[in-house]
Amino acid sequence: MSNAYDKQKRLHYDVTNVGLRAQATAVGLIQLCIELRDANILSEDAITRIKSTIGDELAVGPYRRIASREQRSEIDARLNRLFTGEQKLGSADSLSFVTTPED
Rank of each mutant, 00 (worst) to 15 (best):
Y5L: 02
D6A: 14
D6M: 15
D6R: 15
K7I: 03
K7V: 04
K9W: 12
R10C: 04
R10V: 02
L11S: 07
V15C: 08
N17D: 12
G19D: 01
R21L: 12
V27I: 08
G28W: 08
L29V: 12
I30N: 04
Q31A: 12
L32M: 14
C33M: 02
I34R: 00
I34D: 00
R37L: 07
A39E: 05
N40Q: 04
I41V: 11
I47W: 04
T48P: 03
K51D: 02
S52A: 11
S52D: 13
I54Q: 02
G55K: 01
G55T: 06
A59G: 02
V60N: 09
G61T: 06
Y63E: 06
Y63M: 07
R64D: 09
I66P: 00
A67I: 09
A67R: 03
R69E: 12
E70V: 13
Q71K: 02
Q71L: 02
A77W: 12
R78P: 06
L79E: 03
N80L: 13
F83C: 02
T84Q: 08
E86H: 07
K88C: 00
K88P: 03
L89T: 09
L89C: 12
G90I: 03
S91N: 00
F97L: 05
T99L: 03
T99A: 05
T100Y: 15
P101W: 12
P101T: 10
D103G: 06
